[in-house]
Amino acid sequence: MTPFALLYALHVLAATVWVGGMFFAWMVLRPAAVSVLQAPERLKLWADVFRRFFVWVWVAVLVLPVSGIGMWHMRFGALESAPRYVHIMAGLYLVMLALFLRIQLLQLPALKRAVAGEQWPEGGAVLGQIRRLVGINLVLGLLVIALASARPLF
């Protein structure tokens, strides 16, 4: 396996974990949790899901720029030599990272405090904020995947 192929594989796997996890949470887990769990159990579930999923998101958040910049350098040399779609992908990554950091550093601690204090209405409000940010990130992630698929790196 060439170094470029290894970086590409790591990049695709990291994106798949992050975006695929958001898709599963938004489209499958959330509706199922709403249909079978009461608010307290649902909030406890989401606090635990985020705790477990965000470990993998952190891995993706670290692997994506390392592999992406590595491929960028190997394929195009200087940063300004890359095509516009590569710059767009990098910019969208930064927006997605900012949204993830907002969830991780601001909303998730508030959700944990609400769950620990059994403040279910406050926890529900925070979960709603997280859901909106994850929804935005999911759309951005799908857009990046569509962009990457439409402009393969060969």
Rank of each mutant, 00 (worst) to 15 (best):
T2I: 08
T2S: 15
P3G: 11
L6V: 15
L7E: 09
Y8M: 13
Y8L: 15
Y8D: 14
A9V: 15
L10R: 13
H11S: 09
T16V: 03
T16Y: 08
V19G: 06
G20P: 03
G20M: 02
G20R: 01
G21S: 02
G21T: 01
A25T: 01
M27G: 09
V28C: 08
V28W: 10
L29K: 02
P31F: 01
A32Q: 13
A33Y: 04
L37D: 12
Q38K: 13
E41I: 00
R42A: 07
L45A: 11
W46R: 01
A47T: 13
D48I: 04
V49F: 15
R51L: 01
R51Q: 09
R52T: 15
R52N: 10
W56C: 07
W56D: 12
V59G: 11
A60M: 01
V63Q: 06
L64N: 15
I69Q: 10
I69M: 11
I69F: 14
H73A: 13
F76V: 04
F76W: 12
A78E: 14
E80Q: 05
E80H: 04
Y85C: 00
Y85I: 02
H87C: 00
H87E: 03
M89E: 10
M89S: 12
L92G: 06
Y93D: 04
M96D: 11
L97D: 08
L97I: 05
A98C: 02
A98R: 01
A98V: 04
A98Q: 07
L99E: 11
L99D: 14
L99Q: 05
F100C: 02
L105I: 06
L106A: 12
L108M: 11
A110D: 13
A110G: 07
A110N: 10
A110Q: 15
L111C: 08
L111Y: 09
A114N: 08
G117Q: 15
Q119G: 07
P121K: 00
E122A: 15
G128A: 08
Q129H: 03
I130M: 00
I130E: 00
R131H: 08
R131Q: 05
R132G: 02
L133E: 13
G135D: 03
I136F: 01
N137E: 02
V139S: 05
L140G: 06
G141P: 00
G141E: 04
L142E: 11
I145F: 15
L147K: 02
A148T: 07
A150D: 06
L153V: 10
F154K: 07
F154V: 09
F154T: 12
